[in-house]
Design a protein around this nucleic acid. Structure first.
Lengths: 159, 159
DNA sequence: CTTGACCCTAAACTTAACTTAAAGGTTATG
DNA sequence: CATAACCTTTAAGTTAAGTTTAGGGTCAAG
């Protein structure tokens, strides 16, 4: 098939497919007599794989190292290995999400845990100690200066 | 404190801190008579907050919209609302990912229990072709959404 | 034989989020 | 007073993952 059809079928742009070939993610493709690229059907699968891995958070460099250059030579074992790899990818994604979520929840908790009229300085110190970098614990003076953190003001506005 | 100390305390580079000021993430900072930037202690908190938000998937654009220039006038409600929304987003993605993973695991089990008498390559192809349109689609879209976390725009358009 | 859809290449451009470089002022220390 | 370790600015460079542009060929239809 021509690149246009492959683009339609895979959902990727022409330029993106050519780009992948250029950077060595796709092996050099056969040409018709007129110079047009002629893709085999499994090119769709290949692109889907690349896109999936990419969307799972892997860079093109990583994918290049990960994905076998030739789909047709895949056999039972290789396929299984690849699928297991895909599970690993998903697990990696899950871990990323969990970490993001944990960070957010922690931050929310720190902001929300501000009872009215209660020791602001103490709250500020706890907030500081929960924020990421460890060096922050030395910022005890900062805690005093930032004791207004979490103090409620005017009604919310969204941008 | 000077920028060097702030860099050390926050764990961010000098250039990064100046960059944040340049792009309006940090309000214009006070200067000493000699022209050096003079940061208040809460600058450490501000930078930690920015870094945390970034790790959670917020773009600098989003952070700029979310975090007010002055910590003291922090729009508590809007921020919390936004953070909660982000957590919900992440939870939805986690659910979808879990389902995708379950589907993949099942597919693997399918293949593993296949008797080895049959045409391996053909079978592998057939199963593989299930990937893009079948079991992995939710993983794919979920992963795509993860990439979109904190992003308002997709890469390069326009000219 | 021209129109329009499709294809080609090479190179420049895009965006985010920084970093590095160039060229120089300031300050603490031996 | 030299020298290193700070600080300043503006401008240009970097990386990833493509997109867009410029300047063509190719092919089916009318």
């Amino acid at each position: 098939m021509n690149i246009g059809e492959l683009a339609t079928r895979s959902g990727l742009s022409h330029s993106r497919i050519r780009f992948y070939e250029r950077v060595g993610l796709l092996k050099t493709v056969d040409r018709q007599p007129n110079g047009y690229r002629s893709y085999p059907p499994e090119a769709v699968v290949m692109l889907a794989l690349i896109a999936t891995a990419q969307q799972a958070g892997f860079s093109l460099d990583e994918i290049r190292a990960l994905v076998p250059p030739d789909l047709v030579t895949w056999e039972h074992d290789a396929l299984l290995e690849s699928l297991h790899g895909k599970v690993k990818e998903i697990e990696a994604l899950q871990a990323r999400l969990a970490q993001s979520k944990a960070g957010l929840v922690e931050l929310i908790k720190d902001i929300e845990t501000k009872p009215d009229g209660v020791d602001c300085e103490d709250n500020a110190r706890r907030l500081l100690s929960r924020l990421p970098s460890g060096e922050l614990t030395s910022a005890t003076t900062a805690a005093a200066d930032v004791k207004m953190l979490g103090k409620k003001r005017r009604p919310a506005r969204r941008g």
